[in-house]
Design a protein around this nucleic acid. Sequence first.
DNA 1: CGCGGTTGCAATGGATCCAATCAGACCCTA
DNA 2: TAGGGTCTGATTGGATCCATTGCAACCGCG
Lengths: 215, 215
Amino acid sequence: MSTTSQRIADVLAGRILRGELAPGQRITQDELAADLSASRIPVREALRILEQRGLVTLRANAGAWVASMSRRDLELSYEIRERIEPLLLLDSLPGLTDEHLDAMRTTQDEIAATDDVETFLDLDRRFHWTSYAGSSETQLSAIIARLWDTTQPYRRAFARLAGSQGSWVISAEHELLLEALRRRDGDVAAHVLSLHIRRTKVALLEHGDLLSTGG
Amino acid sequence: MSTTSQRIADVLAGRILRGELAPGQRITQDELAADLSASRIPVREALRILEQRGLVTLRANAGAWVASMSRRDLELSYEIRERIEPLLLLDSLPGLTDEHLDAMRTTQDEIAATDDVETFLDLDRRFHWTSYAGSSETQLSAIIARLWDTTQPYRRAFARLAGSQGSWVISAEHELLLEALRRRDGDVAAHVLSLHIRRTKVALLEHGDLLSTGG
DNA sequence: CGCGGTTGCAATGGATCCAATCAGACCCTA
DNA sequence: TAGGGTCTGATTGGATCCATTGCAACCGCG
């Protein structure tokens, strides 16, 4: 069995990523401890773990809050991803099996079929991370996972606003990516991925009001 | 005054970055607590803080170690830096004052004059981070700071092996960077920086034996 | 009526104590 | 003698209790 700290961190991370807790919202140690039937010690460690993942902001002698990003931070996050996710994809490609590609195929079909925002977010995440499954766990994947996590609330807000408009663009880009991966063409795949992220960034930032969920 | 956790984290980080503790070396909570006259609670939090900075590796019910990287991780760290440090530099450039540039000028003169490895590492770090001083604290600078921190032991090992050979190349690149920044030529500055990092990576990885310090 | 200081409470930070876990040595057996 | 199992010690993880900090309401003074 894992530690209590890790269990608490997992539960809290899930709540944040599912949007049950909004960016900027206060988190009190006592409350969480009582809620999960533990003392405050593992709660404090869990908050440290989530600070590390960028999901929580801590201030000494003041407390903890669900992390929120400035518009500039959000923009830079996408520009980082645009430059290093292709790196991870190239590192992953040699290790990608046909089973991985089949799984991506299936996931993409489900993406094209869904209208629910939460389902889409989940599937989109799965689609891309399956493409990274050929790479071993490194600092690179950790950094990217963190960027995905911290921007998740804003992706959700955007997806809600945009509705299903433009979802066909995403599907088209996913198809291009998938085809390039099948041909084992790393250069094209990396390029498509880079463009995919850049276009998402632009679309997302056009909605200036999506930062209203928290400062 | 800050918290005890933060103070312990700072002390331990300093020891690791100065090379007093080698990668892979065990850290026991009791020892650290006794050494710094504190209980184990803030020590545990300090270890979490340093795990966040990538300086310490934690395993549940087993303990803490000074973090070490695989060769592949080291290589990827440089490839990430090569792609995103130019981004930080471009973000910083509008905010860079003449005072910043003068400080870089002075630091570079000191770099050219020194033969001591520790002094060089310190000055080189200062040179580049001064060039980022025009940017506000974002996730981007945090990621890069982390990459600098975690690769520090290997930079040190390389600098010792290489001695002062090739230090003129570094100085030449720094001069090019400085000149481009003075002209406010972001494109050239970013390009020089990218090449600077890439060349450093290649030189560093040629020494396959520098990973001997820890596994 | 507005501002500064003070007081009280709520929440966090830290210390001590106890329980659970892991690593290694030792012993017993085949 | 080699292998496996058990037992013991050391170390980490967690709970309870106390100290400290920060925030806010309240009171007094100008």
